[in-house]
């Protein structure tokens, strides 16, 4: 299938392995990506906090450029949760709010642009892979099944919520990535934290809050017996990976749960080399976990069991006030 592609700032650099692995697998799954020319930053979760109309206009420029470039597809995809949600939010709110629609288009006109709200289908990359390309097409490409690898599928927040277009089976316990990872041969562990927050921008503005959230997730994944966490978002990857190291310092713990992108696992199962998939750029080394999938047999000898991390006191689960 063809789709317009919005990479976003993170994929360009900090999440380069996400982009590299996506580019490495796209032909296998028949995904043709057309990058939006000269796209700008989506504003993350910050621009919207300062100027509302300007934030929508910032995003509107990307939508307008994409619309102008849309020839044989009306699907616009992004791999980053925040980028995806921003594109989807502006499109949705322009559609629902005539005043906002008029205002944003008036701003866009200052740059000679226009966007017809609703003219593009904004979809997260995971959505395309699972629902458009489909599990069977993915499975058909698997040459090196990930037997023996235990993974925690982590969705984070902004792809499955608020879910303006109703793309997911659940806002709190979605299963699409679980099914995808199973199609690759991996064993998906059962855990309850798959859509809990990674800390978002709190890792910078209030690290203690973020460390608590990161510990809860990492502890939960380790507790469930996962060899790694699999993510679909650069921000989640950064918080759970790079800040896992900081979190360990803060709590005097020694968790070592690597965090990879679902596209990297697809690539491994498709027989690509770790290098080509950007594996090795993570902070928490993924090699020990990946050593497991060299084994062909689904049952891996119970050789060295990783030491169990100390149970942290963690943050409470969602509760009634």
């Amino acid at each position: 299938m063809k789709a317009l592609f919005y990479p976003g700032c993170s994929m360009q650099r900090n999440a380069r392995p996400y982009l590299d692995s996506l580019l490495a697998i796209r032909a296998d799954i028949g995904l043709e990506l057309q990058e939006i020319d000269d796209w700008n930053c989506c504003g993350a979760t910050e621009y919207m906090s300062v100027h509302r109309v300007a934030a929508h206009s910032l995003i509107g420029r990307n939508l307008a450029l994409a619309q102008a470039q849309a020839v044989d597809t009306d699907v616009l995809t992004a791999g980053c949760s925040a980028c995806f949600l921003n594109l989807s939010k502006t499109d949705t709110q322009m559609r629902e709010d005539a005043k906002l629609n008029g205002t944003v288009n008036e701003a866009l006109a200052a740059g000679g642009l226009h966007y017809d709200a609703g003219s593009l289908k904004v979809r997260h990359l995971l959505d395309l892979v699972c629902h458009d390309i489909g599990y069977d097409a993915v499975k058909a490409r698997v040459v090196k099944p990930l037997y023996g690898l235990k993974v925690a599928a982590y969705y984070g927040c902004q792809v499955v919520r608020p879910d303006y277009d109703g793309r997911w089976d659940s806002h709190e316990h979605p299963t699409a990535m679980d099914t995808l990872l199973r199609a690759l041969g991996a064993e998906v562990v059962d855990w309850s934290l798959k859509t809990q927050c990674c800390g978002g921008h709190m890792s910078v503005i209030g690290p203690e809050v973020a460390f608590g959230l990161i510990r809860r997730l990492i502890h939960g994944a380790a507790e469930a017996g996962a060899d790694m966490v699999v993510t679909l978002c650069p921000m989640c990857q950064l918080n759970l990976d790079a800040y896992q190291v900081e979190m360990n310092k803060h709590f005097h713990t020694d968790y070592r749960v690597p965090v990879l992108y679902f596209t990297q696992l697809m690539g491994l199962a498709f027989g690509k080399s770790a290098k080509e998939l950007g594996i090795g750029k993570e902070f928490v080394d993924a090699t020990p976990a990946l050593a497991k999938i060299q084994a062909e047999a689904p049952k891996v000898a119970e050789a060295k069991r990783r030491r169990r991390p100390k149970p942290g006191d963690g943050l409470p689960m969602p509760r009634m006030e």
Binding site: Q12, D38, H51, R61, K99, V104, A109, A110, G111, L113
Partner: peptide, 24 residues
Amino acid sequence: PHRIEGMAQLSAILERAKSLEGVL
């Protein structure tokens, strides 16, 4: 930092948007 090519265009859009901020 990386600078986009259409910076002048983006600035014009954002400037107009800010002048419309209260209109919402």
